[in-house]
Amino acid sequence: MVALASAGYGGAALFSVVQLYRPRWEVWALVSAGLGWVSETLWLFTHVGLAMVFLTTRNGTVAVAVWTLVAFFWLAQRSSLKSLGSFLLPVTFALWGIDRVLTFIFPPLMLFAAGWRAHVTWALVLASVVSFVVSAVFAIMYVEKERELKKRRVRLFYYRLPALAVLDRAMGRLAAIGFAIMTAALVVALSGAATIVHPWRLGVLWALGAGVLTVRYHGRWRGPRMASLTMLASLVIVAYLFGAPA
């Protein structure tokens, strides 16, 4: 199942980039993503088990994050943001691949988790991470399209990516949603969960999210500076996803 999921996600990442140049390949990206997603779903249910396990091991949490990102990709297929897949699927495959390598080197640890609060906290953190990752993907798209427009060399991204304002808005909204979820996670963690999530580390992430939103909505940052900051913040948050439970 893991091999099938890896092959599916690898193919989806490759074909989703190819379809930017040759739109007819889109169907292969969809088929590959579908293969990976279904295989991963089966794997989650049959081998990892439900919430009790996958929310308390690193490879389990990353797998759920990847599964959720691909679910987001399917949702985006139904909107005007179809080109998101060409950036999101490679990022998703990278997360999946890094996790597979880490799992190979460091066998997954079963972490201590007691009570529903611990699981709710971790599930909220996970949702927040997913939100920030998608926000970062929009930031990458923004930077690529803006580069073409500023250099007056219209090429692929000029034609295929949504308007800068749309990308900027999506970037900001997802960061705001991620921050709101992370706030909820922090509240639950501070309310006494015997938890795998260290409140002080979560607090650092929360402060990072707060900083991103402050410069955006109070400092009125837009454009490449905001995109760079979003990517950086998301990178830190993803590092936390890999590092926190270990």
Partner: peptide, 23 residues
């Protein structure tokens, strides 16, 4: 003035038109 301000002159616009025609 700002990264969110775009300024195109007539040559820039024609460059886009040419790229569109080639496409």
């Amino acid at each position: 003035l700002s990264a969110t301000i775009f300024l195109y002159d007539v040559d820039d616009v024609m460059r886009v038109v040419d790229a569109n025609r080639a496409k």
